[in-house]
Computed example of a mutant assay.
Amino acid sequence: DAVADVHGVLRSVTFRTALWLRGIPVAKIEKGREEKKDFIRGGGREMKPLEHTVIRYCDVFRKLGFVFDDPAPAVRRAHPNPMGEKSGTWVGFAPFSAQQGKTYPEPLAREAVRLLSERHSRVFIHSGGGAEVEFAREMERVYPNVTALFGRVDMAGEIDLIANLDCVVSMDSLVMHLASLVATPVVSVWGATHPGLGFFGYGCNPRGILQADLECRPCSVFGNKPCRFGDYRCLFDVTPALIAERVSELVGK
């Protein structure tokens, strides 16, 4: 009956155009590329946050005649705990991303794990495979209360675990959004990107945002541009101590 293109990339444009030429109604996402360029040029300072991507998704369906309110943020609900009975405070740590500008540097990640493991009963490291899981399993060997999650739970299990955590530390990446779906508090670390560009976890508490005040950031929408200085100072300025303190604030310790 209709096509709602919420992706807006070459393959979806080709698909929707082919069907539009056959008389099928189509609607496409407005990504606000020029707005985002202006936001980056302005460094995000004293600038109104751009429309959230979730709302941009909703607007595509509204163009096709659907009538509905913006979604309410998630609320906490009981989920099964794939890691068994919980005791004390449990914290998740997701230092990885597909882009270097959004990945917490390894020396800092090691120190963050140490601090979090000292302060909280259990720490769970969210990761992919390869070098990421090697790091997570090394931390597991060093600290008895650290658990590497890769290979132990599937996606549904990971969401269930996140729903049972007291807080998650995440970059601008998947785990932040998974936590937003189950209303788990998030400390989000922003390097090359910026929460005002519309990709902040929907409904997350802005109090959890950690970002450096540098003239050079944000430098990209997706964190995929190399650092102009070569040192990713935007990430190094968000220290492990800052992360640990913000987690303690959010969990009330």
Rank of each mutant, 00 (worst) to 15 (best):
D38R: 12
G130L: 02
I29K: 02
L108G: 09
F66V: 10
H52E: 07
G65A: 05
R62T: 03
E51W: 00
A112V: 13
A74P: 08
P80Y: 05
P71H: 04
I29H: 00
R33M: 08
S87V: 15
I125K: 06
P107D: 11
R119T: 05
K102D: 07
R62K: 15
K28Y: 03
G43W: 07
V133P: 04
R122F: 03
E118K: 11
V67L: 11
P107T: 06
R122A: 07
P71G: 03
K31W: 08
N81R: 03
P82S: 08
P25T: 07
A131I: 03
R41C: 11
E51V: 13
F39W: 14
A94W: 02
R110G: 07
G101I: 09
A112M: 14
K86Q: 01
C58Y: 06
K31L: 13
T103Q: 12
P105Q: 10
L115S: 07
D69Q: 03
E118C: 09
K31H: 08
R114G: 06
G92F: 10
V67K: 13
G88N: 01
A78K: 12
R56T: 02
Y57H: 15
E34G: 09
E132R: 11
N81I: 00
R45N: 02
F61M: 07
D69H: 07
G65T: 02
S87T: 15
F93D: 02
V26Y: 06
G129M: 11
L116S: 05
V91S: 02
